[in-house]
Amino acid sequence: MRKLINDFLSEHPEIDVIGTARNGEDAIKKWRELRPDVITLDVEMPKLNGLEVLKMIMQEQPLPVVMLSSTTKEGADTTLQAIQAGAVDFVAKPSGSISIDLHKIKTELIQKVLSASKANLSKINFPEDSKFFGKKQNSSIDSELNAAGPVITRGFTRESKKIVCIGTSTGGPRALQQVLTSLPKDFDVPVLVVQHMPPGFTKSLANRLDSLSQIRVKEAEEGELLQKGTAYIAPGGFHMEVKHLGLTLAVSLTLSPPRNGHRPSVDVMFESISRVKNYSKIAVIMTGMGSDGSKGLVEMKKSGTVKAIAESQDTSIVFGMPKAAIATNMVDVVANVENIAQSIMNNI
């Protein structure tokens, strides 16, 4: 597997592989000697596992790390711990711990290593006692969020029915945690979330966010009715849309082709919500590479009342998706991630 990964990455003209390591201890030794720009780490390694190595790197001298993980529940949980500990992104191995069919993820691995090399690591906070490692938040909104200031959009009223939709990719789990844990328990609007992740990982993400948040967070299921105060995360491998069911809205999961390489796709979700009538909508695009969400945002803005919020470059781990959204001239508010929850609340 090391040979295959080495060969894949070396083929790309912008990547120079300067070393490989046979176990966690060797990885620490090579990292200190070679000082690379990016490291790929397998979650499962002898002597020191990937999570242990990652934590040592982040404590000593943080740099971009892309994890490779099996899609077991244990692998998914450990991968999310790695993202919380500072990993920029991860790639799911196609067939378990020993995957000799790694060619299936060759393109994804190259893209994520290149993206990681441009990641804004200075915006990742690592204190063990922060909310990223903490328990349920007990304040409705963190006081510093008030810096977002009042936002008023014509068409938004206290009485109108509302829906919040959030799209994110690289760096998204940390950004989602910042936003969802800052929403109060009496938040009376449904939230739909697309986080680019493969099958097997979104359930672990939803469970983790649910344990930290005052609102309910769950992996979306086909046909379920949207409930106020619940965030629904699109399952990896499925597009998530919404459909009218009587007087309410329901989740619709589809296996239509990936959009721009993604399923779930933010564009697909946004376009679906653009067709929902008699709702005011809040669309949020946060950190991530690429431009997913910008076309869907344009469609949303064509119909109905929409407030669009994009994460600022200052706090985005990767500024691709917010930058593309801002370039449409359809974004109403550009906010640091710690202010996004307040921007949402200002329109509820």
Rank of each mutant, 00 (worst) to 15 (best):
V251I: 15
S256P: 01
A325S: 11
M1N: 05
N120W: 14
M1H: 12
V88I: 11
E299I: 04
L180Q: 00
R263N: 13
F270W: 06
K123M: 15
D26K: 07
T107P: 01
H262I: 10
I340L: 14
S139M: 06
F132D: 10
S274C: 14
S69N: 02
I163C: 04
F126A: 05
L212D: 00
E74D: 10
T153L: 06
D188Y: 13
V189P: 04
S139R: 02
K185E: 06
T181S: 03
G19S: 07
A92H: 10
M289A: 07
V53Q: 04
R32W: 03
V88Q: 04
L114K: 05
G50N: 02
V65G: 12
L9W: 03
V268P: 05
K243E: 15
L247P: 09
K203I: 11
A220G: 07
G288R: 01
V318T: 03
Q111A: 09
S265V: 07
E128Q: 09
F201V: 08
D16H: 01
V266N: 10
V17I: 09
N120A: 14
A231Y: 07
S256W: 00
L41K: 05
V284R: 00
V306Q: 01
K323E: 03
I57K: 00
K135M: 12
K295R: 09
N339H: 15
L205K: 03
V331D: 08
G304Q: 03
P322F: 07
F319Q: 02
M45C: 14
M321A: 13
S115C: 08
G296R: 00
T230W: 10
M58S: 06
K93H: 11
S303V: 14
